[in-house]
Amino acid sequence: MHWGMVIDLRRCVGCHACTVACQIENNLPLGETWNKVLTVGPEGDFPLLVSHFFPRPCMHCEDAPCVDGCPTGASQKRPDGIIIVDGERCIGCKFCMLVCPYGVRQFEADKGIVQKCHLCYERLEQGEMPRCVETCQLKARHVGDLDDPGSEVAALLKQANARPLYPHLGTKPSVYYIFP
């Protein structure tokens, strides 16, 4: 079992509903986002300008630098591939933030710990979808078992030539993008 996500950038319209849904689900303060949507472009020469949106959750890397570097074991990789942070063990050294090449980790100053997207693993265990996947009205996000060749995400990986972000860094992300 290896949970993964495929994000179809051709479908994302940058409504930020996933960002807000994630904030509500995890009771995050207004300025903290575990699931930011970036705007790429506009690129090209007028009038032939193109633009798309780029959601950035945690990549849940197989070879996660944050897990390797954590001095307390607070950053952990679950058997199902999801990277979580044990808030009771985190000392807030921010080394994981420093080594994460995707900049997805957030320091919660009031608690003095680092937190991030955990792919709503509690919802997944109950058979529900992560809140961002459930909220996305344009079906840009898909979550499933990357090890199961019959899963929707495995099919998308094959059909749509989905690829991870910056594979050359060697982190082996579990989030794949279908680029426009």
Binding site: C70, P71, C90, I91, C93, V114
Partner: peptide, 21 residues
């Protein structure tokens, strides 16, 4: 002083695989 949660600083010695430890 750099640590966000100073009371737990002894946990920094708990994982020898980490370069920080």
């Amino acid at each position: 002083a750099e640590l966000g949660n100073k009371k737990r600083f002894l946990l920094v010695f708990s994982r020898m695989q980490s370069i920080m430890t």
